[in-house]
Amino acid sequence: MNVDLDCRGLLCPLPVIKLAKTLPTVAVGDTVTVLADDPAAATDIPAWCRMRSQELVSAAENQYVVRRLS
């Protein structure tokens, strides 16, 4: 299962806040795909995954796939 999260046009820290609120709504092992064009997201979404021990599956072209690990 994957849930899409459109954060295009939102500035930091909003994409990360939305990701943090959405990930607990999917099952462990499922993914959230974040669309974000704020330049800060390129650093902050990977950093969030590291800090919260979630898996960054991929990050490319304003699209970030995050898997819920816990």
Binding site: C12, P13, V16, A40, A42, T43, D44, P46, A47
Partner: peptide, 11 residues
């Protein structure tokens, strides 16, 4: 600088 380090840039 923060981006190159890969650390959180907001807040």
């Amino acid at each position: 600088v923060l981006a190159a380090m890969g650390v959180l840039t907001h807040g």
